[in-house]
């Protein structure tokens, strides 16, 4: 276990140390102490390492992550896991607005609640929230899965494309062109896999699926240039 203490080193030095880890590094386990809400912690990682942040983080923790597993033992500020490509990020506490925004891949697990705009414009990332999510979540979501074990706020899935949204609790309101859809066996299988990987003890059968009605002007071929 390597320890990086943010009371002793600058953010840039810490991130450069993590960036220097190669595909076949022997130093696979890292711990970051004294994060104190700093911005951009463990951003841009690209190695199969495990990083544990001992405390709460500020803006953009784990942004652009590839391969790495990042555990946040606290809550995360805005834009956690933004544009994640692969790997796993697990947050013990809550996540602020636009968690997992534009993410292309990997798994983001939020054990508390997520704020507004969770999964906005997601492009393939899987997001599992153990608690609730705020308004305008999955706005213009393109692909990937958003699983919510609690409730969803206003305007869920507004203007979404092919992303799948699974909500166990209530949905305050659906956004434009977002509708409830039938839950087929292949969806239950996707859900079962995600819930297991996210350590959530909910049953797939308890969820409803939401998706795009494909009625907005963007889906009409006559509007193509």
């Amino acid at each position: 276990m390597q320890t990086l203490d943010m009371a002793d080193i600058e953010l840039r030095e810490m991130n450069e140390t993590l960036h220097a880890q190669a595909e076949n590094t022997n130093q696979t386990s890292w711990e970051i102490v004294n994060p104190k809400g700093a911005h951009a912690i463990a951003c841009g990682l690209d190695a199969p390492i495990e990083v544990t942040v001992k405390g709460s983080t500020g803006y953009y923790c784990g942004g652009m992550n590839k391969q790495a597993t990042i555990n946040i033992e606290g809550s995360a500020g805005p834009g956690v896991a933004e544009n994640m490509m692969s790997g796993t990020i697990v947050i013990d506490g809550d996540a602020s607005q636009y968690a997992g925004a534009t993410g292309h891949g990997g798994l983001l697990v939020i054990k508390g609640n997520a704020s507004s705009r969770c999964g906005i414009s997601m492009k393939g990332i899987d997001i599992v929230v153990h608690g609730n999510i705020g308004h305008m979540s999955a706005f213009m979501a393109q692909t990937g899965n958003l699983v919510v074990c609690g409730d969803a706020g206003d305007a869920l899935g507004d203007s979404l494309y092919e992303a799948r949204l699974f909500v166990r609790g209530s949905v305050k309101s659906l956004g434009a062109d977002c509708i409830e859809k039938e839950m087929r066996p292949e969806h239950l299988a996707i859900l079962a896999d995600l819930l297991e990987r996210a350590g959530a003890d909910a049953k797939p059968e308890e969820f409803k699926r939401y998706g795009s009605a494909r009625e907005l002007y963007t889906f009409k071929i006559d509007n193509a240039y």
Partner: peptide, 16 residues
Amino acid sequence: EYRALVDLPGIEDARV
């Protein structure tokens, strides 16, 4: 931001 609160006494056990 949470950063602004980190030096308050007892913040580790605060409801945030």
